[in-house]
């Protein structure tokens, strides 16, 4: 994957497949001498048992039937660990799953965060019946936060479909501009 935002899209699609009704994508940037980028994807999908959680980052384990390999989680884990970061999956059957990746964005092998707005817009567009929340924070001396929430968009739209092309385009631009403002324009994009 060329961008972490594509890993986020891929992992969130697993939440969609797990029957989640609400997915929260968290991006926390902590600047400083050893900057840290923490990405979490939290869903209320059907979850996994302990045995499945243990095997989930194994590229030769998959739930799908068309192929015997499942690279998605393995690729995200690799992207985190290549920067000296960490990766974890916590899950409870019937409750949901939390995928957490902590990365060092200044590391030589760090993949750029990329276009998170395009990822968010793609999720909203292709699963318009679900709720997607994007929470982006920048910590440090001048803390910033931005939250995009489909529940809020829905309230404003009053029945105009969330997945209609002009609305999706608005959401994409709105998130992109606010995200750049929150995280710092040239840092990851």
């Amino acid at each position: 994957m060329q961008e972490l935002s594509l890993n986020i899209l891929d992992i969130a699609e697993n939440s969609v497949a797990a029957g989640a009704t609400r997915v929260v994508i968290g991006i926390v940037y902590t600047p400083g001498p050893a900057p840290l980028l923490t990405i979490t994807i939290t869903d209320d999908g059907h979850g996994m048992d302990e045995d499945t959680v243990r095997r989930v980052a194994d590229p030769f384990y998959t739930t799908r039937t068309t192929r015997k390999v499942g690279m998605g989680t393995a690729l995200f884990k690799q992207a985190a660990e290549l920067t000296g970061g960490s990766f974890s999956v916590q899950s409870r059957l019937g409750i949901g799953t939390v995928v957490t990746a902590a990365l060092h964005p200044d590391h030589l092998d760090a993949v750029p965060l990329g276009d998170v707005a395009a990822t968010y817009a793609a999720l909203v567009q292709t699963s318009p019946e679900m709720e997607f929340v994007l929470r982006v924070c920048r910590k440090g001396e001048d803390p910033q936060e931005f939250v995009a929430d489909t529940a809020q968009f829905r309230e404003i739209l009053q029945g105009v479909p969330l997945n209609s092309a002009p609305v999706v385009q608005f959401i994409s631009d709105y998130v992109r501009e606010n995200l750049a403002q929150t995280l710092g324009e040239d840092l990851f994009l």
Binding site: G72, A118, A121
Partner: peptide, 21 residues
Amino acid sequence: VGMATCGIAAGARPVLQRLTE
């Protein structure tokens, strides 16, 4: 649009973006 790991890694998101535009 195919949006599994294979599709995403191959460039499905910019295709979807252009379609929407």
